[in-house]
Amino acid sequence: MPCVEVVGANWEMESQEHADADGLVLLFEMHRAELLRFLTVRCGSAEEAEDVVQDMWIKVSGLATGPITNGRAYLFRMANNLVLDRARGRRRSMKRERAWIEAEGGGVAEPPEDRKDPGEPADEVIAREQEAQVLRDAIADLPEGAQRALRLYRFEGLGQREIADVMGISRSGVEKHLALAMKKLRQALADCGMFDTAASQGHGGQSGRKPRMEQGQ
């Protein structure tokens, strides 16, 4: 385990001003096995999980952090976010690829009614407008309570407890509203093909598409 050796060396040689980063590195090593287990199931591949662990190692050892109140949760959240970054990058490159295929006269991925300007090349701007429109419609279609909770949560930055106070309902009521809203948004995006390629990704579906396309960060 070469990494382990590096950690040992690090601890001995690092000067005191990096005590916090040192602490995080130790914490990372302490929870490495749990993080790897989490990442393996989260990524659906042991290989990708190892990649993310490596990314984390680089981040953690180079990080000048302030005091962290809950290091373990911090590390798990970091792991989760890194996986999400990858999924996001994957979706983006898939979208570009699909746009390219369509421009070449290939199949149309979205249902026609979602395509605002079928004549125009599907460039980034249009794709983004489309996404915004899908989301706008989906939000407008939400039941009253879910819509209000979502607005307070995402547009006004309130926490769930604050939303409970504002709306005069329980915490669990807020959670129910928000979960419904998230589900409906996901449904609307899925209906217009947002996750089509992404969905087959994890199971090694599409020809020639490598799950990991992004480079570096």
Partner: peptide, 16 residues
Amino acid sequence: HSAAYDEIALSDDLLQ
């Protein structure tokens, strides 16, 4: 479960 979680999280990401 993981795929479902990804889709929910990506939807929320787009929303933000």
